[in-house]
Design a protein around this nucleic acid. Structure first.
Length: 491
RNA sequence: CGAGAAGUGGCGCAGGCCGGUAGCGCACCUGGUUUGGGACCAGGGGGUCGCAGGUUCGAAUCCUGUCUUCUCGACCA
């Protein structure tokens, strides 16, 4: 299942791009840097969204919605936050258009200039904290556990479908707590939710870790992350959860009265995952035949393809296919019977493989005679002949097995691509020739981190949470270090 | 914004040096034969060659300008 890892980055990028378009997930749009998520891609995102939303609710969160526009002044309230986001925002300066008297079509009405510009949210901390100020008065109002599903805009210079687009869909959780430990625990809990989702649903093994100061979110005290490895050996940040300390509470003056009647600033977290997860899913499992989707997230889990000659055969096959469909649906399986006659079976086989449908059932006259069906699994491309008796149960087991098999394959690949390095030459060599994570000692300074990035393009992806202490020397500076950190080239 | 490349039916491209009736593959339409791994035959429709100037009897082709897109860097979930 795993693709050769050697393709030069450029080829891999091309392969990825073609796959997204050919499989019908998304396409470029007329607006530079933005994409159109097509129905199939959106169905996949919806599957992810539904599962995540359920997990958020299971951990006590509620959904809400805040405005798309943020007054410019809000962004300047938190110093580090401005630093991090100010440069890449879309700005609304006017609120009206008019017909050009000179006949040049529609123009911006110069009369309609806004007194204060509005920023299209690149993230919602500021507008949300401005609201929280009014919502939080007492320790009884805490914790406040809110999530928002929304779109955000970041004016990226260079974009890639799903991985980095100017507009993207995501969820952002924003919580307020009475104490630092409680907020810290929330940030870690949500990281655990993300990791669980990635591994159980996406079949994507991730490293749970904390970011180095240089990679930290603008305005956070600590940024936790899950890091995944793609098949070309590059790392991808799949989700982040931030402990924000009291930074935003102070910037927006959000205080509450404690049980002891003392006024204190609240402690905050924020956490998010985006449509980038769709890109992660594609890059982690796909092969040269197309997408490979984990059954738990595949919009379509089983497709039934009839093979017939003549109307009499077709009628018999239809009847049997309907019966099987009903049985599978009853077992909670998402199934489609594709008896369209404008393309031939071979075309359908290839098409559904491209789309990553986990299981295909081919049903022909020959099969009916023997009371069997040809069942093919997408991940290994194995075909088997299964009895029509009790087929639903067999398919259910098969889907479970595929889910596990995809995870195992990705896991094996990931384990093989965490490589220790104890000197800089080896470090560089691993990055160039093998790719993946390199586990190495680092002196803890931002200067060394920057220098390594300049020399190798590799960044510190994270300091793993379960990192064992180990005395060593920094790979670049030779200064003492107490633990290894994970480096990689990243998306 | 720096460095490269490309703009020709819906999509992918050829033609360009050497100016002379705009072509190929896929897709589409019609008819027929097909259907167990991306079918075949026959017929058909569709393009002022990115835009603007220039050279010429004549420009997709040569010249000048201009616009757009893509790839690579700086930015980033």
């Amino acid at each position: 299942m795993s693709k050769e890892i050697t393709p030069r980055q450029q080829d891999y990028a091309q392969w990825y791009n073609d796959l997204i378009i050919k499989s019908g997930l998304a396409d470029y749009s007329a607006v530079r840097g933005c994409m159109v998520i097509k129905p199939y891609g959106f169905a996949l995102w919806e599957r992810m969204r539904d599962e995540l939303d359920r997990m958020f609710k299971d951990t006590g969160h509620q959904n809400a919605y805040f405005p798309l526009f943020i007054p410019k002044s809000f962004l300047s309230r938190e110093a580090a936050h401005v630093e991090g986001f100010a440069k890449e925002c879309a700005v609304v300066t006017h609120y009206r258009l008019k017909n050009d008297p000179g006949g040049a079509g529609v123009i911006v009405d110069p009369e309609a200039k806004l007194e204060e510009e509005l920023i299209v949210r690149p993230t919602s901390e500021t507008i949300i904290w401005n609201a929280y100020k009014d919502w939080i008065k007492s320790y009884r109002d805490l914790p406040l556990l809110i999530n928002q599903w929304a779109n955000v805009v970041r004016w990226e210079m260079r974009t890639r479908l799903f991985l980095r687009t100017s507009e993207f869909l995501w969820q952002e959780g924003h919580t307020a707590h009475a104490t630092a430990p409680e907020a810290e625990a929330e940030a870690r809990q949500m990281l655990a939710v993300y990791a669980d989702f990635a591994e159980r649903y996406m079949a994507l093994p991730v490293v749970r870790g904390v970011k180095s100061p240089a990679e930290r979110f603008a305005g956070a005290v600590d940024t936790y992350c899950i890091e995944a490895l793609m098949q070309d050996g590059k790392a991808l940040q799949a989700g982040t959860s931030h402990f924000l300390g009291q930074n935003f509470a102070k910037a927006f003056d959000v205080q509450f009265l404690t049980r002891e009647n003392k006024l204190e600033h609240v402690w905050a977290t924020s956490w998010g995952v985006s449509t980038r997860l769709v890109g992660a899913l594609v890059m982690a499992h796909s092969d040269d035949e197309g997408l490979v989707l984990p059954p738990l997230l595949a919009p379509l889990q089983v497709v039934i393809v009839p093979i017939w000659k003549g109307a009499e055969q077709k009628a018999l096959i239809d009847a049997k296919a309907d019966e099987i469909s009903a049985e599978l649906k009853k077992a909670g399986i998402r199934v489609k019977y594709d008896d369209s006659d404008n393309v031939r079976p071979g075309w359908k086989f290839a098409e559904y493989e491209m789309k990553g449908v986990p299981v295909r059932i081919a049903l022909g006259a020959r099969d009916l005679e023997q009371n069997v069906a040809e069942v093919a699994r997408r991940d290994t491309r194995e075909k088997m002949s299964l009895s029509l008796d009790n087929l639903a149960a067999r398919i259910k087991d098969l889907l479970d097995d595929i889910q596990q098999q995809i995870y195992r394959a990705a896991s094996t690949y990931r384990e093989e691509h965490i490589t220790p390095a104890d000197d800089f030459d080896t470090f560089r060599k691993i990055l160039d020739e093998k790719g993946g994570f390199v586990s190495a000692h680092w002196d803890g300074t931002a200067e060394t981190e920057t220098r390594i990035k300049e020399l190798t393009k590799a960044t510190i992806r994270c300091i793993p949470l379960d990192n064992p202490p180990e005395e060593g020397k920094c790979i670049l500076s030779g200064k003492p270090s107490r633990e290894r950190v994970l480096f990689a080239r990243a998306y």
